[in-house]
Design a protein around this nucleic acid. Structure first.
Lengths: 222, 222
DNA sequence: TAGATTGTTAATCGATTAACAATC
DNA sequence: TAGATTGTTAATCGATTAACAATC
């Protein structure tokens, strides 16, 4: 009786590559691919093949086969399992304004195993109404309702100066994972994860690259 | 005559912390702070003070002063300079549908030095119209117009299966930095930067944390 | 001067890559 | 068998942290 062997450690970086692998594997599977070699995957993404093999080894329940490569279907199943697309988590949204409410109608979120069950806001124009079929409550009810609904994921889409307060209420309500679209650092107790989605960070990287690039081309004008 | 000393290398990770520092420094500056010690900053963010000192040293034009700390105002200026908030870059948007068009009305983008000058789409209902005052052209015009307008930044907000094509056209038009909101890997020639904004990645991290957390609490039920 | 706070050099840690052995 | 492709062990590389000297 062989028990499941311990999987190698999966780094956060490797974990973050998984959705990309998944998307690619699904595409080639739809095109009829049954096996795939690490070399081909590596070429597609511009990674090294060793890295791809290590990543697959860390997540796959079946080893790759020399001369054949990896089983595409099995990899898809394993990665989906790892990423939690096969369970559905319920989440609440704090900040149901122009930006926040786009989450209500965002279908792709559902595909990734997230379901938004309610929204919160302080604007009386929308409190008590429904947006895309989801109820919007006053923000003062956050912790009470999160407790009652046993929600463990919160999305913060409020202005930066209200973000920490929203965060505190979510944590009080038992939320364990927070998706933070505000631009401030959130302080949370240990055990709570904050996933930052910070446009300013991305834009800074873009603009930095661009400036370096344009400056360089200026200095060395061919 | 002392020439400017070479700044220490700034890692990408450090660079990505800068927008957070900036936001915090601006806040305490508005509250009247003139100097700030690395220890206080570190406490706020949960970093080590050494890391904060290294980060500040890499970006600051003035050294910190023992017993006084760093000059808040100077740091703000230096970080804004580094992040490129003091120049404005023009960008085009490919995919002006429900999601994409939110960029047109997004004010905070402007604050970070980005200005969207035009949109592209293949939907004839919006091609030729203006959305929030910005013209929307047909996607077949991407490279031509980017060349003419000398635009170097492109935002991709099209469905995944059209993303690579959009990317190719942008690159052909001379775009050097691409903000990719689709969920696929984009292949670009060397020298072009792709900044991925992948919801699937973030969601996967959230859901992973949650599942680990809930599982653990089950096993050790107190 | 003493103490707080900075800056620097060395150590640690983790992720990626290289070299090579294993196997279908 | 030979060759392609995998898996494993060791080396490299870069970021963070620790220890400590410098300085206001």
């Amino acid at each position: 009786m062989k028990t499941e062997t311990k999987k190698p450690h999966l780094s956060i970086q490797a974990f973050q590559r998984m959705p990309y692998y998944l998307q690619y594997l699904k595409k080639i599977f739809a095109e009829g691919a049954v096996n795939i070699s690490s070399r081909l995957v590596a070429q597609h993404f511009g990674f090294t093949e060793i890295q791809v093999r290590k990543d697959f080894a860390a997540v796959s329940s079946a080893a790759g086969i020399p001369k054949h490569g990896f089983d595409v279907k099995q990899l898809i199943i394993d990665i989906e399992e790892l990423l939690g697309y096969r369970n559905t988590n319920e989440a609440v949204l704090v900040g149901a304004g122009a930006f926040g409410s786009t989450f209500f109608k965002c279908d792709s979120i559902k595909e990734y195993g997230l379901s938004i069950v309610a929204g919160f806001d302080i604007n009386n124009d929308i409190v008590g109404k429904q947006i895309h079929g989801k109820p919007v409550f006053h923000s003062s009810k956050i912790s009470e309702l999160c407790k009652r609904m046993q929600t463990h994921i919160g999305i913060i889409a409020v202005p930066s100066d209200q973000a920490q307060e929203a965060c505190d209420k979510l944590v009080e309500g038992g939320v364990l994972a927070i998706w933070n679209f505000s631009q401030v650092h959130l302080s949370v107790p240990e055990g709570v994860l904050v996933q930052n989605e910070n446009m300013a960070v991305s834009l800074a990287l873009l603009s930095k690259h661009l400036q370096d690039k344009l400056k360089k081309d200026e200095v060395i004008p061919k």
